[in-house]
Design a protein around this nucleic acid. Structure first.
Lengths: 353, 353
DNA sequence: CTGTTAGCGCCTTCAA
DNA sequence: TTGAAGGCGCTAACAG
């Protein structure tokens, strides 16, 4: 064993102060009285290691408070033990949306039993987006979960072509059938919401749609449409929103101006519904008396509005957790069938409708 | 130059399909007609590199779409080019709070001009927390930003002792004066809020306090107290909340039961204020007629309540951005003075008070 | 079951 | 200004 001066003296940082020297495998092995390889084997799986050696290594690890150097390990295993959460959207909108928080929570839960770290990738447009793409393509992570995906970020194609293990939260645009994803049945949700309004006696039902370059926006709108068609009602009263409260408020103003006689509104998100409520209050329309309102998501805001919102419970956390687990399976298990897992939204009735 | 078979054939993944082979520095150098060292120098800073060589390397990089392998680089530079955002809280609460979204946005903005990645560390209690601590201590990141820090997670001490560059968002408990942090003047904010209620004619002013094991909770409470003392009013009517809407609602119920004659409420967060509004409505108390309400944060929810909340604008994004920039400075600049940056919250008057 | 031996891709002295 | 050579800490054959 060559005596290495480096391992004797603690490293000295820029400041000139001694820095705690992270223990290496070498030191663990030495302390355990075994070779590096044996120590390594004891750490990874422990196969073909005698109980004695295993115990010695375990003890050394505990005493030294050792953690493997990820960089060194990555270099040889060609795995990074990290996955990316890709958010292809610049603005505060996404981050502020409780939907995003739910996603984070679900994925974190899925990753929890592993030692895999979550790297956040906010993929701004243009030049920035290219940087993100390159980062992903050059395998700086073992896989990616994409959330809040829009039609024109070519993320689905790019990631599909790259063969980087990827799972979308929410149906991707292109390459469907070939790209793994989890989703809720948004069309069904939109239909349920609208049917609830119909059953409650509404006959002039408007919708505040989400962004139509997102699958969720499109699908919920389609659900609203099909319920109205089935009931023989008009599907004229549609205004686009952007999933934000302000957008919902603006859309409501437009709806009231164009269709003053509406008696029901299906908003494609609770945030937009909240915006609608405030505008309706300002216009002196009572809810649910004059106009009934149904939202979508039930991620917290629905209970803090006045009146509380009837809405569809969007199982975001469960869904994202499934996405995380699916990704884990893809990473460790290699390619396997991509059967999208579809969750269902449930109607939660409160005062607003 | 030894001919390496590996670089000729694309790697084959588990699935048996060819995988895109990430280009290496070796390939860039070969293509540019220079040595690895020159290529490396051209990539990092470009000092002592002839314009011709520089250009050749740049071209090769572009053609190959090359990105340095972070693991290999980390191994030798002993930097990871990643920083952690540490959230020492298990529950959904934190993630759902718009405060967290703001933090994320601010830090992301600070990191944007660099190539540093953000790693999310959700530090659950107990065993999990130890794993997080070890991860941090063993320098798997170059630095850390800690948000939503509680008294009993010993994060401040641990991180301070470890000498890992760290910045707290919100005043840490221990080691103050020695640990870098950014904060808003919460006591001042609490005072302003309360003074607004006093000026509006309230004389029996309650507060819904935040968690008292968090600096923000404590400081806002202190501000409320001092304003009341100054005005010669009672500071009896206090109920604890937990920064959530549900907690705010419960606290309000308790307040109304114990102090039925209150005419003003200062809630230490908008979420709690929203909960208060719904309870007040249920009890038939009009806002601001019977009871005036002031919240704290103005991160979106204040405008979607009925009535919209008078509140204190908490500059979370700016503050977190400052935290990120401070961290960057600490990482690159070595130890430097720790002058906490204190931001100020501004009163935003809306209908509720 | 264990130790020896080679690199993983990159940066960095050291000579030229 | 450039290239050759060594090594960061770890895993993975390959012998024993």
């Amino acid at each position: 064993m060559t005596d290495d001066a480096r391992s004797a003296a603690p490293a000295v940082g820029r400041s000139g102060l001694t820095m705690p020297h992270a223990p290496t495998l070498e030191e663990v092995a030495r302390r355990a009285g075994v070779s590096r390889s044996t120590a390594s084997r004891a750490i990874n799986g422990g196969l073909k290691v005698s109980p004695a050696a295993q115990a010695a290594v375990d003890a050394a690890i505990a005493e030294l408070n050792y953690t493997p150097n990820r960089a060194a390990r990555s270099l040889v295993t060609r795995r990074t033990d990290s996955v990316a959460l890709v958010v292809p959207e610049p603005d505060e909108r996404v981050l502020t949306d409780p939907y995003f928080a739910g996603t984070l929570q679900g994925i974190t839960a899925a990753l929890d039993p592993t030692d895999i770290q979550l790297v956040l990738l906010i993929a701004r447009r243009g030049e920035e987006a290219k940087r993100t793409t390159r980062y992903l393509l050059n395998r700086h992570v073992d896989g990616a979960v994409v959330v809040s995906h829009h039609r024109d970020d070519a993320l689905d194609q790019v990631l599909h072509d790259s063969r980087l293990p990827t799972v979308f939260v929410g149906r991707p645009w292109a390459a469907a059938g070939d790209v793994a994803f989890v989703d809720v049945d948004n069309e069904h949700g939109g239909r349920i919401a609208t049917e609830h309004l119909i059953k409650a006696g509404c006959t002039r039902i408007a919708t505040i749609a989400g962004p139509l370059d997102m699958a969720a926006g499109l699908d919920r709108l389609a659900g609203w449409r099909s319920a109205l068609h089935e009931a023989g009602l008009s599907d004229e009263a549609m205004a686009r929103g952007d999933f934000t409260s302000a957008g919902g408020a603006a859309a409501t103003e437009r709806l009231l101006a164009a269709y003053p006689d509406i008696d029901g509104i299906f908003a494609a998100s609770d945030l937009m519904a909240a915006g609608a409520l405030s505008v309706l209050a300002r216009h002196g329309r009572s809810v649910p008396g004059d106009i009934k309102v149904v939202g979508y998501d039930d991620l917290g805001v629905a209970t803090s509005t006045a009146p509380p919102l009837t809405t569809l419970r969007n199982p975001v956390v469960e869904m994202s957790r499934a996405a995380g687990e699916l990704l884990l399976a893809k990473i460790t298990g290699g390619d396997q069938e991509v059967v999208p897992r579809i969750f269902h939204a449930e109607l939660v009735v409160r005062e607003s409708a």
